[in-house]
Amino acid sequence: MLDFSLDFPFSVFAWNLLYSALGVLGLLALTYLVAVLQKRHSVIDTAWGLGFVVVAVISFLSSTATTADGGRRLLLLAAVVLWGLRLAGFIGWRARDGKEDPRYAAMLSKAPGNQNVYALRRVYLPQGIVLFFVSLTVQVGMFATGPLGFFAWLGGLIWLIGLSFETIGDWQLARFKADPSRRGTVLKSGLWRYTRHPNYFGDAAVWLGLFLISADSWPGLLTVLSPTLMIWALAARTGKPLTEARMDGRPGYREYIAQTSGFFPLPPRKDS
């Protein structure tokens, strides 16, 4: 059963919103400085996961002296920190060559003026706003007062499935790309046999799980738009569509699309 108790510490939570916003702003300012010095704004991709870690830690500390449920606070903190650090570490490792991501290079090449100023407006500001909005699920959940119930544990299980898909999918893709003989071909084995985007599906499952952990107690239900935005972006906006547009001309990719589920893992379709 969902907990609808009304003893949510609204006044302390309001201050946490400010602290979290300042934390995100500080991280993005540091990231921007590093990007300008390194002359590559794709470093913000590494900061994305770290931003949620910053918010989770701030919210955990802010809710310490309240009546918020300790079990939920610890569960959310562990889940966000593990997910965020893994994602940041993987993206940082993937970009270890120090080169600008072609997507950012193409976008910044169209800048009407100074590219750094343009990046601030078109990259950092939007991502900061989205990061803060999506993190509301975590922030609210940290202050929820009801005990962990069925939906919280279900959310934990879904989070674990999502993290596993994301981690294994990224590992399988990295191994595939490391083999020069496979360059220009399409990965169709492992988790990629059941979904064309196990990493994006895993990310979506992680945020669905975090939402259920928070929504198990009032007023976590009110943050439903936060995971919805994240899942929509992954499945229909900046994740799956952009990746498939980039892969469209690769030999065998059309056949792969015809046989493999676009997002949710399903058994491969038989050749017609």
Rank of each mutant, 00 (worst) to 15 (best):
T66H: 04
Y104W: 00
I91E: 01
V117L: 14
L82W: 06
G113C: 04
Y104A: 00
N116A: 05
L76C: 06
V54T: 11
D101W: 06
F90C: 03
A106V: 01
V117D: 02
G98R: 04
A111P: 00
T64Q: 15
D69S: 08
L75W: 13
A56Q: 07
A106T: 05
S109I: 02
A106Q: 10
V57P: 05
L108C: 07
L74Y: 13
Y104T: 02
L120S: 06
V80D: 12
A95I: 09
R122Y: 05
L82H: 01
L85W: 10
R96D: 08
R73H: 10
L85A: 13
R122P: 00
L108G: 03
W83A: 04
A119S: 11
G71H: 06
D101H: 06
S109A: 15
V81Q: 12
G113D: 11
A65I: 05
Y104N: 00
R86C: 08
R122C: 10
W93Q: 14
A106F: 04
F90M: 05
D69Q: 09
A111C: 04
P112G: 07
M107L: 15
P112A: 08
N114A: 02
L77M: 11
A119W: 00
L76Q: 02
A68S: 12
R72T: 14
R86G: 10
A79F: 11
L85V: 15
A79I: 04
R121H: 13
A95F: 13
R94C: 08
A65N: 13
V55W: 06
W93F: 15
R121V: 12
R73G: 08
Q115Y: 07
Y118Q: 07
G113M: 07
V57T: 10
W93S: 14
A95Q: 14
L61D: 10
A105S: 13
R103M: 01
A78V: 15
